[in-house]
Simulated assay, not measured.
Amino acid sequence: MTLDPSFMWTAFLSLFKALPTTLMITFVSVICGLFIGTVVALCRIYRIPGLSQLSTAYVTFIRGTPMLMHLLIIYFGLPILIDSLAAKWEWSFTSASIPLIGFVFIAFSITAGAYMSEVVRAGIVAVDRGQIEAAHSIGMTTPQALRRIVLPQALAVSLPNLSNSVIGMLHGSTLAYTISVVEINAQALVVAANNWKYFEAYIAAAVLFWGLTLLIERGSGWLEKRLNAYHRGGVM
């Protein structure tokens, strides 16, 4: 077997067809996961009765099981739940109304939420608690102190780990092909199957993922410098 550089370039260009799907999966899962993770982290930090225990169980289960397992459970389990409720309440909406990528969004958001909750929790804990007490002394409520003082500083502290989570979700998006969602990995498989040149196709996919990872790392580094300059009183 010989390497075919010309086909590698052809495959690389073909992979851009699936790039929007990969980026959409990553973006939606990261944004939803960050929201879920923040809520879960706050429930655990402030030990809200019931929610604290539920949040701990959620994080423990998700972090203790594979990402692919989450996708398959949602893909096979959610339609059973939706269709049973639709039959009981005579809904017109059924699981058939959900696009395949919708299952990916739900499953990966749940996965991202568990991992990001630990990142957010570590960032919040790293902020000096005296700042919250100072905020209370000038009349701020706890939600106001969190929104205006704690969370912005926690974001700056957590940014390196958050960028790692984004990269992890980008790479994890390749699992979407298991339920027939055509992202970069699936597109590489399609291109390779037509020509039986799997090696070249997967090298092209690896290069594309590498480039995307570098962009995330550079963007994270730039944002981290800006946030640190802001918190030191520098000019934005």
Results as ranks from 00 to 15, higher is better:
G123S: 08
I124S: 04
I124Y: 06
V125F: 01
A126L: 07
A126R: 07
D128R: 15
G130D: 11
Q131V: 02
Q131L: 09
Q131D: 07
E133P: 03
A134V: 13
H136T: 12
S137N: 13
G139Q: 09
G139W: 03
M140C: 03
M140L: 14
M140V: 03
T141L: 04
T141H: 06
T142P: 01
P143C: 08
Q144T: 07
A145K: 06
L146D: 05
L146E: 02
L146I: 00
R148W: 09
R148L: 06
V150Q: 07
Q153Y: 02
Q153N: 15
A154G: 05
L155G: 05
A156P: 02
A156S: 15
L162N: 01
S163H: 00
N164P: 10
I167A: 02
M169T: 06
M169Q: 08
L170T: 02
S173G: 10
T174K: 08
L175R: 05
Y177W: 08
Y177E: 05
T178S: 13
T178H: 08
I184G: 04
N185M: 14
A186W: 10
A186V: 09
A188E: 08
A188F: 03
L189G: 11
L189H: 13
V190A: 09
V191E: 14
A193Q: 15
N195I: 07
W196C: 10
Y198I: 13
Y198F: 13
Y198W: 12
F199M: 11
F199E: 07
E200V: 01
A201I: 05
A201C: 06
Y202A: 10
A206I: 13
F209T: 05
F209A: 09
W210Q: 08
W210L: 13
L212V: 05
L212Y: 02
L214G: 08
L215S: 11
R218T: 15
S220P: 02
